[in-house]
């Protein structure tokens, strides 16, 4: 029965990863990356690698989205001042 959970996790990771690549807008891609991080952590746990799963959870759930969204916000603010200044 443990193979079923491995298969489900692999399918979810494949789906999330494809969605992350297909999505072009950075803000929405950050959302998909956050879901991909959670599902990857489950895949590592299912493959009996809890340390890797813990690293993925620690970084992928809050730190990566924060970094990406701060960059998106900086780019948007620069765009706004550029339009305003022109």
């Amino acid at each position: 029965m443990s193979d079923a959970v491995i298969t489900v996790s692999l399918l979810l990771v494949a789906g999330c990863a494809t969605a992350a690549v297909v999505q072009r807008d950075p803000a929405r891609q950050a959302l998909v990356l956050s879901v991909l991080g959670a599902v990857l952590a489950v895949l590592f746990t299912v493959l009996q690698a809890p340390d890797a799963g813990l690293s993925q959870l620690a970084v992928g759930s809050a730190l990566t989205p924060l970094l990406i969204m701060l960059c998106v916000r900086k780019v948007r603010r620069r765009g706004r001042t550029k339009d305003g200044a022109r």
């Binding site: 959670a38 952590a41 746990t45 809890p50 799963g53 959870l57 620690a58 759930s61």
Partner: peptide, 10 residues
């Protein structure tokens, strides 16, 4: 501990 971190950082 994995579930603990997930519940905390999610």
């Amino acid at each position: 501990d994995l579930a603990l971190l997930m519940a905390l950082l999610g």
